[in-house]
């Protein structure tokens, strides 16, 4: 483990020195950024972690990921893909290796578009949970930004921008998603395949974002609505509500963006009958260190008295390397991790 950290430190230093040695004038050569038919980017992320459970047992682990995002656009071909290869190493369990196709889809058209393939829709306005994301994978509450894998589906979308001050723009989306044992298995129940369909209407009315959703999954009708609006320059409010099987789930939250990049996010939500609260206070350029971000988050299941606190400090070395130290404490365990990501 020490050798890995030393090697990473050496690489970061070499890269940083190289970045400092770049020329000091304002030359701007666009050749490097000219549009190419084929593009590929990605990152390599190493994430060693030590976890201590309530019985004081220690578990060493390292969740390492190589993510590659190729794209190809020429004439009518507009292909986008995103692949992840995970190497999950554990001190007390068997190691696990996984290859995941997060996205792989073709898009035709602009205002009226058709997308076909594996893709994530990312419906909803909530940060920690999205009751109306009927066709997305459930977010990981430990790391809500980590879930990237989509489902195989067909998406038709029409964007319209009418003249007028009240309705600024709106869009109509239709989604068809088949589910079977081999395809979109999460939606496969009762041992027979099914055709799921969903409609979404989005509108920016005055300064408010609104989504209305209807979905038919098996024989269940699902309804959803979300809203997002700035009450003032600093204060944004958002909310989501879903209704199906005579039950509802909801989320209400706000984000206060103070000057000097201090942001407070608070969300209250109801998920599968339980009530949760989530708070996150984040500061960019924390402790006067430019390109750093520090945050503390607190999440609690109010019905089961379970909680989780996360402290994080992240620094962008300006050369592709981003290092983040993460300390967590929850009802079950505590952990300390150091995540190093290199973007290429």
């Amino acid at each position: 483990m020490k050798k890995i950290i030393l090697f990473l430190s050496f690489l970061i230093l070499i890269q940083t020195e190289f970045a400092f040695a770049q020329n000091q004038d304002y030359d701007f050569n666009l050749d490097e950024f000219e549009k190419k038919s084929f593009d590929c980017r990605g990152y390599l992320s190493l994430n060693p972690k030590i976890t201590v459970d309530n019985k004081e047992q220690r578990l060493y682990s390292a969740i390492n990921e190589l993510q590659i995002e190729p794209s190809y656009k020429k004439d009518w071909i507009n292909l986008k893909a995103n692949f992840s290869f995970f190497a999950m190493l554990y001190s007390k369990e068997d190691n696990d290796y996984k290859f995941i196709i997060n996205n792989l889809y073709q898009t035709f058209g602009e205002d009226f578009s058709l997308s076909l393939g594996k893709q994530s829709l990312k419906w909803g306005k909530g940060y920690i949970y999205n009751p109306i994301a009927f066709l997305d994978r459930v977010k990981n509450p430990l790391d809500p930004e980590s879930v990237r894998e989509g489902y195989y589906l067909l998406k038709l979308q029409y964007i319209q921008t009418p003249e007028g001050d009240i309705l600024q723009n709106h869009s109509f989306t239709f989604v068809y998603m088949p589910s079977s044992y081999d395809l979109n298995k999460d939606f496969y129940t009762k041992e027979h395949s099914y055709n799921n369909v969903a409609f979404k209407y989005y509108a920016l009315i005055l300064d408010t974002d609104i989504d209305l959703i209807y979905m038919q999954e098996e024989k269940v009708n699902k309804y959803g609505i979300d809203l997002s609006k700035n009450l003032s320059e600093e204060l944004e409010v958002h909310g989501e509500l879903s209704y199906f099987n005579e039950q509802n789930e909801y989320l209400i939250g706000f984000k206060y963006a103070a000057p000097y990049d201090l942001t407070l996010t608070t969300e209250y939500y109801k998920k599968q009958g339980d009530n949760f609260i989530y708070n996150k206070l984040s500061q960019k350029d924390a402790f006067g260190i430019i390109y750093s971000t520090a945050y503390v988050s607190y999440q609690k299941n109010l019905d089961q008295n379970k909680y989780q606190v996360i402290f994080s400090f992240k620094y962008d070395f300006k050369n592709g390397f981003v290092v983040e130290s993460i300390a967590t404490k929850s009802s079950q365990d505590k952990s300390l991790g150091l995540k190093t990501t290199y973007y290429f």
Binding site: N230, A257, P259, D261
Partner: peptide
């Protein structure tokens, strides 16, 4: 940016999020 409304989209993470004019997506 549409008038006074601003959003930031980060690929793969979430739908576009509203951001404030006095904050900075780039730092500096």
């Amino acid at each position: 940016r549409l008038g006074e409304n601003m959003w930031l989209y980060i690929p793969g993470i979430a739908k576009p999020l509203r951001i404030a004019s006095m904050q900075s997506v780039t730092g500096g």
